[in-house]
């Protein structure tokens, strides 16, 4: 699993990247009440806002950590946004992206680097 400084995580399975927000981000947001996932088929560029996550008091954009085409969105979150709090790095995933450039994935932080980054916040 790789991580961004904007607190997204990416897990690669072949050339399909599953994307979500980190446990740290979910904790900081508080109770998640709504998630807007991207449409399947949408082309995204790394760094684009491609999803929205809302708590009662904040709405945050989620940035695509890698470029590619959205091949699946987590439809479960519409009816159960609390999954993002309960299992942010598992069942609370947002979308799957067919990777355009694996180098983007390789350039992201690994867990140790991300945790070291969190320690600086």
């Amino acid at each position: 699993m790789r991580f961004t400084k904007d607190h997204e995580w990416v897990e690669l399975d072949g050339d399909v990247a599953t994307v979500g927000i980190t446990a740290y981000a979910a904790e900081q947001l508080g109770d998640v009440v709504f998630v807007e996932t991207p449409d399947v088929g949408k082309a995204v560029k790394a760094g684009d806002a491609f999803a929205v996550v809302e708590s009662v008091k904040a709405a945050s954009d989620v940035y695509a950590p890698v470029s590619g085409e959205v091949v699946e969105a987590n439809g479960e979150l519409a009816g159960a946004p609390e999954t993002v709090n309960a299992a942010p790095e598992a069942g609370g995933w947002f979308a799957k992206v067919k990777l355009a450039d694996k180098a983007e994935y390789d350039a992201l932080m690994d867990r140790d680097a991300y945790e070291a980054f969190l320690a600086t916040l």
Partner: peptide, 9 residues
């Protein structure tokens, strides 16, 4: 649903 509103968004 006040996250739609100006004071948050």
């Amino acid at each position: 649903l006040s996250t739609r509103e100006q004071h948050i968004r």
